[in-house]
Simulated assay, not measured.
Amino acid sequence: MPTLVIANKCYSSWSLRPWLLMKQLGIAFDEIVIPLDLPDTKAKVLAHSPAGKVPILIDGDVTVWESIAIMEYIGDAFAPVWPPDRGARAMARSVAAEMHAGVPALRSACPMNLGRKFAPKDRGEAVARDVARFSEIVRQARERVRAGGPFLFGAFSAADAMYAPLATRLDTYSIAIDATTRAYVDAILSLPAFQEWRSAALKEEWIVDADEVDEDAIDNYRKAA
């Protein structure tokens, strides 16, 4: 059985991606959680991968790091992870790669934090541009398939796993989005696999100061949990 090495579920957007994909595909795996921002974090991660970053997938004598590489390996070793249609598959790979290096303003201003919810506010033009680009991707992908499920290309794929953390940010920071994008975000947040991840996240006791924005939360889910 493969093992997925991840970080805190409350904060680790990169860890969420392959974890969610494997859960959605019904792939059994063990997990190792290494808390972020602790004195021994780096050493514990390096014990599993020379890259020194999570997530890491270990499958027998194979070690894979970086989320997209892990997802491609999952597709090779366990089950298809991209849409079956060639055109949709090309677009899915393109937008997944775009997400890998994209939305820098949104990532910086709105770090993933499943434990809190913040009031709507103007988070700047750069964040607005990132949100607009995401909405454009959702609209174009949904127009391409039009049926077959509520996700970007109908059925859940690696592209959705890549965009899941962005969906959580839009919810956490109460960012206004159009109806099509809202429906997509709700589909991600309603996934039983995501609910399982979030439930575990809210039970964590670790706090990562770098991922806690300096503003009052309108909801503190971790305190309630």
Rank of each mutant, 00 (worst) to 15 (best):
T3W: 00
L4E: 00
V5C: 09
I6N: 00
A7C: 05
N8M: 15
K9G: 05
Y11L: 07
S13W: 01
S15L: 01
L20M: 14
M22L: 05
L25V: 07
A28C: 08
F29C: 00
D37T: 05
D37R: 09
P39A: 15
D40S: 15
A43G: 12
K44H: 15
A47Q: 14
H48P: 12
H48T: 08
K53H: 15
D59V: 04
T63K: 01
V64Q: 00
V64C: 05
W65A: 05
A69V: 12
A69H: 09
I70C: 00
M71V: 11
I74A: 10
G75E: 05
A79D: 08
W82E: 06
P83T: 03
P83R: 03
P83H: 08
P84G: 07
R86D: 14
M91L: 11
A92Q: 01
A97L: 13
M99S: 06
P104S: 07
P104T: 01
S108A: 10
S108T: 13
A109T: 14
A109M: 13
L114W: 04
F118Y: 15
A119S: 08
P120S: 04
E125D: 09
A128N: 01
A128W: 00
D130Q: 02
V131H: 01
F134E: 07
I137S: 03
R142I: 10
R142C: 07
E143Q: 09
R144Y: 07
V145G: 11
G148N: 10
P150S: 02
F151N: 01
A155R: 13
S157P: 06
A159C: 05
A161M: 04
Y163R: 11
A164Y: 06
A164E: 09
T168P: 03
T168I: 04
R169I: 04
T172Q: 02
S174R: 09
A179H: 11
T180S: 06
R182C: 07
A183G: 05
A183D: 08
A183K: 07
Y184W: 15
Y184K: 11
V185H: 08
D186I: 12
A187T: 13
S190W: 12
S190K: 10
Q195E: 10
E196L: 08
R198W: 11
S199H: 12
L202S: 01
E204H: 09
D211R: 09
D214G: 05
I218K: 14
R222P: 11
K223Y: 14
A224P: 07
A225H: 15
